[in-house]
Amino acid sequence: MALGESLPLHLEILIVLIKIAIVLGVFLFHAAYTVYAERKILGRMQARLGPREVGPYGLLQPIADLVKLLFKEDIVPAEAHKTLFKIAPLLVLTFAIVNLSVIPFHPSFIIADVNLGVLLILAFAGLGTYGIILAGYSSGSKYSLLGGLRSASQILSYEIPLSLSLAGVILYAESFHLRDIVEVQVNSLFGINVFPQILGFIVFLICAFAETNRAPFDLPEAESELVAGYITEYSGFRMGLFFLGEYISMYVMALLISICYFGGWAFPWWLANALPFLKAIPPTLVLALKVYFFIFLFIWVRATFPRYRFDQLMSMSWKILIPLSLINFLIVALIKWLGV
């Protein structure tokens, strides 16, 4: 086949299917072992040992957890809206996984090479909210419903500063494509976006915690107030689907932070010039290391910060984060105007 000639349709579909299988396999494995890592790290931070009974160093614990979840009785409450109750966890998981399709893991490895990658991720994040809200409603329990309501208001409030902080990145790169965002920041004066857009980065990081319902913003599933929030009535593999969705969302957010603010798979030019051996590291490994750091940060924050009150959560978004993200946007506009 001549260079530049497009592949036949069936081959293109096959290649996309293989890519999907690779990405799904890698992320499902990572999600399972992130649970293990979280339990180990939290254990160490709380002066405990964490899981250590199943397999060497407790390494088979995720498999034991999976088997337990699969074989537990699947209970559907009598008061529940049965169809919605069954669909809700699937919605959460599906929209978390779909986000991975527009994220480049390597300059030449992306499942769907679309121009509006960033906007699609925001769109899927908005759709994923319905899974949580409907899970809360369909359970037929007050605890679940309140968890769902909290989730709705939280995600609505935090989506605005999240989008505004991303608007700064988009303006700087003049593109919605995540690959262009990496290329522009690597070739810029600062090397990575986090320096000129430190405000945007802080806002994005805080919003990432809130969007994934992680501590200290895990109000929708606050154990001490709402039992387990929208998950209260779920058991077995359906509950597992919610957790899987949450961990994949964590990875999506970590990937977005790495790509939009830390140069993705590349090192900043000044660091690569100072330490030339860094250029030999494969791009995907560079991205993975950055992502692992942010996943560790997610766990570290969970072990460190107490949960916010609901009014604090709301006022933080509307009174602090939105103005900060707007200031960040103005700074980026000024930088672009000055031609830096």
Partner: peptide, 13 residues
């Protein structure tokens, strides 16, 4: 994308 983000992701919620 704007249709999904604004109408589906915010207003309908």
């Amino acid at each position: 994308a704007v249709q999904i983000i604004v109408y589906v992701g915010a207003i309908l919620i």
